[in-house]
Structure formats: C-alpha cells, structure tokens
Computed example of a mutant assay.
Amino acid sequence: MKKLSVLGIRGIPARHGGFETFAERLCQYLVNKGWDVTVYCQELGCGPVYSSVWHRVNRVHIPINREGPLSTVLFDLRAVWHALGQDGLFLTLGYNTALFNVLQCMKGQVNIINMDGIEWRRSKWGPLARAWFWLNERIGCWVGNHLIADHPKIKQHLATRVSADKISMIPYGGDEVLEADVATLLPYGLEPGGFSVIIARPEPENSFLEMVRAFSCKHRHHRLVVLGNFDPDKNRYHRQVMEAASDEVLFPGAIYEAKVVQALRYFSRFYLHGHRVGGTNPSLVEALGAGCAVIAQDNPYNRWVAGEGAAYFEGEQDLSHLLDELLIDDSKVETMKLSSSECFRARFTWRAVLREYEDLLTRWCTRGTTS
C-alpha cells in the first residue's frame, strides 16, 4: 500500500484556509484510491501526542500549549520529530519551517515540498521575519526531493534556486458553484447583483485601502461587501480602510459558513481581487468557480489565473473608472462571468488538480522509504 504523511498545516478537517482545504481534499481523494494517509494536526493544550481517524485518514494530534506564530513553529518541529520515526512518502505544505526538514533529509526520507508563495516579499513582515522566510525558502529548495509551485511565476522564481527539472507546477483547485441559497443574503440586506464583494485578509499587500477608496469616491447606488477580520482599535491599517469607506460599504466581519460565502460570490456583480504578491490564490480560484465577474489588480499572478476575460486595474483611479463603466454594462459583466467559468473548468477543478498530485506522488512513492 502506498503511504503518505502530510506536514505543514494545522490539520484537517479544514478550518484555517487554503492549504487545509487542499489537504482535506487530497487526503480524501488518496484514501479513496487505496493510499494510507496520515496528517499531522496542531491542537491547543498540554499532553502527549495522540492519534485518531477521520474519514479513513489517520491523524496525529500534537498539543501545543500556546498560541500565535511561535506555536506553529513549535508544532512543525514536533511534527517533523515524530515523522522521523515513520516510513513512506512525505508531503510538506509550505516552506516556512524548512529548517526542520533538514532532519528528514539527513535521515534519507523522501519529502516533496509545496513551496507556496514568496512569503519574504510580503509587506506585512518586518526585517527579521523576512530574513527567516528567505532563509527557509533557500533551505526548502535544497532539502526537498522535489518541489511543487502553484503558479508558473513561482516556478520561474524557484528555478533561480534549483534546476527546473526539480519543480512541478500544479495550481490550487476549487469547487464549481452552479447554484446558491439566496436566502442567506437576507440578514445582510443584499439583493442578487446589487453588490460586489472582497474576500481576503485585510493587509496592505491585498490593496484593501485602494479598492475601498476607489469604490467610495462617489455614490455608486451599489453595495460593496468587504469580508475579513477587522480590528480598527488595534490595527492602524484596518482603521484606515474603514474610515475610507462610504456608507455603501458593508463590513460583516469574517464569515466561515461555506454556504454564505458561496452565495456572496455567486450573487455578486463583481469579485474584487487586490492581491499583489503570491501564486495561485485560493480565493480567486473560488471566485472563478462561482462564475464571478472578476476585477483584479494587474500583475502576472492574477492575469494567469483569471485570464483575459477579467478586468484589471493598476491603481485607485483606474479601478474607479472601471467601476463607472462596468456598473452600467450588463452585457460586459455577463461575458466576464462566462469567461470565469470557462477558465475555471479548463484549469482549476479539483479533479484535475488532485489527479496531477496523485501522478506526481505515485512517481515518487517507490522511493518513499527511509534509508
């Protein structure tokens, strides 16, 4: 039986974001194909490591008696230490603590690393954090037996570190949303087509301030729904975004109920995407899967994902002009929605993405034993 252990995430079922969602999908896909799959899960608390089984996926639970970034570092260290006693193939999602994967390399374990985005370029990090991520990216390139990039530009970047033959490009996947429950919009006072939506972490690199200003510079007779965890009392950037918003902007907070988020995408007029750094962004893929008309910040990452059917902006004024044009052009919006659906089906379905992962893992599985 082919055996795989997954490291680098907080665990499954998914509660924390894109990597966890992907891991949940991949693990269930592989066990249905006859694989023996184990996932390392971070738990809050004290006590010994313990095991459980979730939908035929083995879980190794590691309690960590603290919260915050340091807790993740400690969890990754303990997970790698435990993994040293296991056999089979290893898949590490992210390189943020690749320093610990050196131990697996020294033992001869076969470890495939999904290198995620270029974390050290993100503006939210200070100099020490950037140095840590830069160093771990280098180490990950060195110790990973094979690397996965989720975007062609990420593969190009990694190819400046290692041979391109060592890198496979496999994007993120998503679900196609063909219908949604309109009743979920009622608590927010929204009507289909009468609002647009932003779904992201409210950080400067995701262009929240620019998008909210561009929308709020005039009365739009339209609503903008901005999802995310905002804390204006503690976070200056959050406060700036909320102060820049007109009374047509709604901040409902972070919404984790899948059917509500799906409805917000499905019934929106536009999905606004301001990410400037990264590879294949899960939220953008999910917007394509919901058939959203996408307006995105103009960069190579977003253009490859959303294709030529999306609209792109370079700054506040550019976005404001796009909104002026597209809020009154129903025909163009329908064309954009159709393009998003076609782009999604051609490139980002879970079936295609998970099959590519299975093919890659199978090729490495015969080498996935300790030496």
Rank of each mutant, 00 (worst) to 15 (best):
N229A: 09
E43S: 08
S5A: 15
L89R: 09
T349I: 07
D165M: 05
H151R: 10
R220I: 04
T366S: 15
S168E: 07
A346R: 08
L30N: 11
L209A: 03
Q109M: 09
N229Q: 09
L93P: 10
L158M: 14
D330I: 02
S268C: 13
N101G: 02
L288W: 00
V6Q: 06
A306H: 08
R213P: 05
G194K: 04
E205R: 09
R363W: 04
A346Y: 05
N206V: 10
R121T: 10
L44C: 08
A244D: 04
E176W: 00
N206M: 08
E358W: 12
P48Y: 08
D231R: 15
K124V: 15
H221G: 14
V241F: 01
S5Y: 01
S268L: 10
Y188F: 15
V80R: 06
G117S: 14
D76T: 05
F75T: 04
D318W: 00
E24W: 01
N65T: 01
E179V: 06
N96L: 13
A310N: 04
Y256S: 14
H273A: 01
I9K: 02
G126S: 07
P204I: 05
S320I: 03
A287Q: 02
S123D: 15
P48M: 11
V225C: 02
G189V: 08
T366F: 04
Q109S: 11
D36Q: 12
D87W: 04
L30Q: 12
K3C: 15
P152Y: 05
W54D: 07
E20D: 13
V39T: 06
E314I: 09
S339R: 14
R138A: 12
P63G: 07
R239E: 11
Y266F: 09
P204N: 03
L224W: 02
A244S: 12
R161W: 13
D231W: 12
G11L: 02
D36W: 05
N32Y: 12
I62F: 01
I167M: 10
Q262N: 10
G278C: 03
C141Y: 09
P300V: 14
L158K: 14
R367V: 06
I9W: 11
V80M: 07
G253C: 13
R78E: 01
T370V: 15
G68C: 00
E137R: 05
G253E: 09
S207A: 07
N299W: 07
R347Y: 08
S246E: 06
E43D: 06
I12G: 01
V260Y: 02
P252R: 05
G94R: 13
R363C: 13
L326E: 11
L272F: 00
A183Q: 09
K218F: 11
M242L: 12
I64Q: 01
G289D: 06
S340H: 09
L190V: 13
N206D: 10
E179H: 08
A306C: 12
P69F: 14
I154R: 09
G17Q: 01
A258H: 12
M106N: 03
D324Q: 09
E137Q: 09
L103R: 13
T72Q: 11
P202M: 06
M336T: 09
S320P: 02
S283R: 07
Y266G: 01
P204M: 06
A164H: 05
S163V: 07
V197N: 03
N96E: 15
V333R: 13
I62G: 04
A98M: 06
I167E: 10
G88D: 10
T184W: 00
V60G: 04
S51D: 05
L147A: 10
T335H: 13
A346D: 12
L178T: 15
